[in-house]
């Protein structure tokens, strides 16, 4: 182990890069510079506003202190609602994603058609952002928690299904073969040889997604899909900055606690 490392370090002190490497680095640098120059040159920005931005941001923060806690009850209730949205949506999505992962995994899918169907569902769910899903469901169901839950579910299914599908594809084939050899039916082979191997991933991705969904639920309200975002939007619209500050602090607390809980659960379960 030690000898290859030391030779490469020695080579590096002689001539740090081979000519080809040097050329590649130069080309990369050129591309990056060109991209940045293009972006700065052509972006539609009123530059005086940019120079003014630090002052404006500072001013905004100035107006936020001291935070106003008179609405704390409503804020706490909104936090609980946020938590419920994330939890219910994650719970449902985990179970919905199971059959989709099953048909989207190459080694378990019944046939080519189901494989592509599964992959299509996963890709479309994953590439549309939660907020865009929320826009759609608010338009359909009207503003409220329901639209939020469904939006989070739709986005989570792709995430969970993709990771679960990969876990299914990576299972050890040998127990599967052994159980097939005992004359067990397909459904029982899935139950005994595939499910146990995928369970750790199932919990891990479920917890991970719950953590992500908690963050996403905090912004659903900005498009009217429930949770703490609704009162945040209200406070911003009425320029009630001290309340905004309280809400922001509440969000930080929620997210940090959620992350801690997720980490604890992960240790406990896996």
């Amino acid at each position: 182990m030690t000898s290859p490392t030391s030779t490469s370090v020695a080579e590096r002190t002689w001539a740090r890069y081979t000519p080809q490497q040097r050329w590649k680095r130069f080309a990369t640098l050129l591309v990056v510079t060109a991209a940045v120059v293009w972006a700065v040159e052509s972006i539609d920005i009123i530059w005086p506003w940019v120079w003014d931005a630090p002052a404006q941001v500072g001013d905004l923060f100035g107006r936020m202190v001291p935070p106003d806690v008179s609405n704390l009850r409503a804020i706490l209730w909104a936090l609980v609602e946020t938590l419920n949205i994330a939890t219910i949506a994650t719970f449902v999505a985990v179970f919905v994603s199971l059959p989709i992962a099953y048909i989207a995994a190459q080694n378990t899918t019944p046939n080519r058609f189901t494989l592509w169907l599964g992959r299509f569902i996963l890709v479309s769910s994953r590439s549309v952002n939660t907020l865009i899903w929320a826009l759609l469901f608010v338009a359909i169901f009207g503003p409220g928690v329901l639209a939020g839950i469904i939006a989070i579910m739709f986005r989570s299914i792709g995430f969970l299904g993709k990771l679960l599908g990969e876990a299914i594809e990576e299972i050890d084939r040998r127990p599967v073969e052994a159980l097939e050899a005992t004359g067990a039916s397909r459904a029982k082979v899935v139950l005994y040889a595939i499910v146990p191997q995928v369970i750790p991933t199932f919990f891990a991705v479920g917890i991970l997604r719950w953590d992500i969904n908690l963050r996403e639920s905090t912004v659903l309200g900005l498009v009217g899909a429930g949770g703490i975002g609704v009162i945040l939007q209200g406070a911003i619209d009425t320029l009630n900055w001290p309340t905004v500050a309280t809400i922001l602090l509440a969000i930080v607390v929620l997210v940090v606690l959620g992350e801690a809980l997720a980490a604890w659960l992960r240790r406990k379960v896996i």
């Binding site: 097939e180 005992t182 004359g183 146990p196």
Partner: peptide, 29 residues
């Protein structure tokens, strides 16, 4: 297949199941 037992070089057990569950796999059929 239920009437043909097979033993493998790599054992081919389901690691995360208990020994009893692994043994009962032989009855799944």
């Amino acid at each position: 297949r239920r009437r043909i037992g097979m033993i493998f070089q790599g054992f081919n057990l389901v690691d995360r199941l208990t020994v009893m569950e692994n043994v009962q796999c032989g009855r799944l059929g």
